[in-house]
Design a protein around this nucleic acid. Sequence first.
DNA 1: TCTAAATAGAAACGATGTTTCTGTTAAGGA
DNA 2: TCCTTAACAGAAACATCGTTTCTATTTAGA
Lengths: 205, 205
Amino acid sequence: MKIKTYAESKQQHADNLKQSIVEAAAMILQEEGPEAVTIRRVADKMECSTKIIYNLFNNKDGLIKLLYIEGCNVLATSFKSVSKQENMENYLRDLCETYWDFSRNNRGYYQLMFGGAFHDFKPGDESIHATNTALQQFIEIITEAIEEGLIMEDDPLQVVRVIWASLHGVIHLYLGGHIQSIETAKCLYDTTVTNLIRTYLRKYT
Amino acid sequence: MKIKTYAESKQQHADNLKQSIVEAAAMILQEEGPEAVTIRRVADKMECSTKIIYNLFNNKDGLIKLLYIEGCNVLATSFKSVSKQENMENYLRDLCETYWDFSRNNRGYYQLMFGGAFHDFKPGDESIHATNTALQQFIEIITEAIEEGLIMEDDPLQVVRVIWASLHGVIHLYLGGHIQSIETAKCLYDTTVTNLIRTYLRKYT
DNA sequence: TCTAAATAGAAACGATGTTTCTGTTAAGGA
DNA sequence: TCCTTAACAGAAACATCGTTTCTATTTAGA
């Protein structure tokens, strides 16, 4: 059995602590929303001073970045629980529904990731990569559909982005209070999904 | 000629002052972005203390609300400069392009109105009404298209919202840094508009 | 054991939205 | 005209935020 050096042990302790801090922040995020995620609140929950957090993360953005990745993992997990279907239309609908449900069930994560809740956080390369990983299942099915000739496009990523942007538009207008009721928003979402499927799966039928 | 009473005169002075404050805030918003719009900055520009602003507006949200309405007016003016066209598709494209240009040329207003830049501002009835007024030209053309049988839907507002949400989705993902280059975003926008027109103007051709 | 380096907690700094305190200014009646 | 009273404006204060500094303690290595 390999013995950990002192430095390694220290590093592991730091990593564990870091993860605990992220989890504490995630709890606050989901229970009380993005505004409640402050360094002091997280430090209180961890029963430590703010200095420790600043020792492990450069600044608040460093913590937000990990929360972003955590959110991507949640989204990715949701997508992975969608069972593949023979019928491409149903499969696509399920994936869209999963994205919609994610925004509803993880409002805090959604606002942090895509809602711009932390206005001085901009996703860097790492965040973008995590996002693409989360959307991978989406990208794969579109790639497949293109290969099977079901979709007349050449760039799957572009197609996914069009779908993503449309769904996000509805969700974000709702979260911003521009769509007043959830029923109206859901109705808009349904129409949008139907339109997208019509556009991409039946373009030349 | 009607003589203004003292109270009226005072009221007018208050109204003028209020308008000047909104304009000062609007200048800061457009030149330096939403983060720069603080009560103290506005007070500095007006060369007065913050108290005056709080006397005229209940709180910062009161000022933001007027900026929101101002932004709606800018958007409405942009739409009004779009000349009507016989060809419905071209007309629709022009209106979409105008919305896109608004987000590019008035980034500050866009972030304030639809980007959620001020996270504790939620549009109330007045703001919603101003938004609908700004989008009225859009609503009218869709209503017309429905009446002429060019679009197979019954609720024009619903159609406009679907279009609005789709465009907003692209713009907001770009502003949030999830679409990295403006070229990619423009490309996404073009595809989205084409899809929307296909969907609504050629549904049964 | 002693010195030096790392670290953690409390306090402080600058900025924010907002309120309070205080002095000045203006209004209206005697 | 003068005096009282109410409106108002400016400065300072308060609570909170992200972040830094200061100081004391703990720890590492010689």
